[in-house]
Computed example of a mutant assay.
Amino acid sequence: MKNVGNATNYLDMDTKELFKIYSTNKDQYIRNILVERHLYLVKLLAKKYINKGVEFEDIYQVASLALIYAIDRYDVEKGFEFSSFATPTIIGEIKKYFRDKVWTLRVPRRVQELNKKINDAKLILEQKNKKHPKVKDIAEYIGATEEEVLEAMEASYGYKPVSLDSSNNDDSDDKDLTLIDRIGKEENSFVSIEYKDFVNKFMENLNELEVKIFKDRFFLDKTQSTIAKEMDISQMTVSRLERKIIEKLKKEYEKNN
């Protein structure tokens, strides 16, 4: 049975110190503390994928497991912030879940596997070249034809299709409107996020530079190097400001929950 005094000490410890201890003894109690401290990140990232044909609770569960993977693999000695390390891991696992588990149309396995290669190639090429890869670049990288790449990319829209003729099931005045009546243009904003008010209020405490980094990193999935190049500042500066923003976000979240 774990010593109560030690348990209390763990709860009071700095996160980095906990990671150092966990890296040597893999104590599950410590891991649980680390998980609790970073669930805000899971919720923030998981909410980016709501209204995509999958229940939020399923996405949240996948993201939570990804958080555990990230905690187990994180090496505090390398100097990277855990949030920067964990974010691509969590997003990657969510996207993998969509690719592997949510196909509802009869898409050939060959096309599903090709689509996975394409998504992996996109990430690698974008990191390498600092820009979105063209179909030709992806095809050359994975050794496929451009037609095969386009076919797989089209097939990727086979996630949980919903009839455009389906109507609203609630008791509101516009319940007879169909989905096609409601479709509008895609908007890259925080409208689809349940905690819009929380996010907007949080951003009021950030300066203009911090707001841009916050949006670019967590909602536009831009890399630190891309942001640094766009703003003509060093990547180290972006990394430092990101750590500062995350600390503010964590404090604000804990204060409101």
Rank of each mutant, 00 (worst) to 15 (best):
K251D: 15
D176S: 05
L11N: 15
K196Y: 10
Y253D: 02
K96A: 11
T8W: 00
E210K: 09
K48W: 03
Y10L: 04
L249R: 00
K26D: 10
F214A: 01
F198W: 06
M231P: 04
S189Y: 08
D171S: 14
D221W: 00
Y29L: 11
S83M: 06
S192F: 03
R109A: 13
M236P: 01
V102Y: 13
K255L: 06
F218E: 00
S167K: 15
K175G: 03
S172M: 14
L45V: 00
V4F: 07
V111W: 08
D171C: 14
L220S: 08
P108W: 12
V191I: 15
E77C: 06
L125H: 02
K255G: 04
E230V: 12
E242N: 07
V149D: 02
E186Y: 06
T226K: 02
I91V: 11
L220V: 07
N3L: 10
M203C: 07
A152I: 08
Q235I: 02
F214M: 01
F190Y: 10
L18G: 00
K52Q: 09
A46W: 00
D75E: 12
N119I: 07
E77R: 12
S239Y: 04
M231A: 09
S166E: 13
K251P: 01
V42P: 00
A7G: 10
I50C: 00
L150V: 11
S163P: 14
T24I: 12
E210F: 01
V76N: 02
S234F: 04
L105W: 08
K101H: 11
N9A: 05
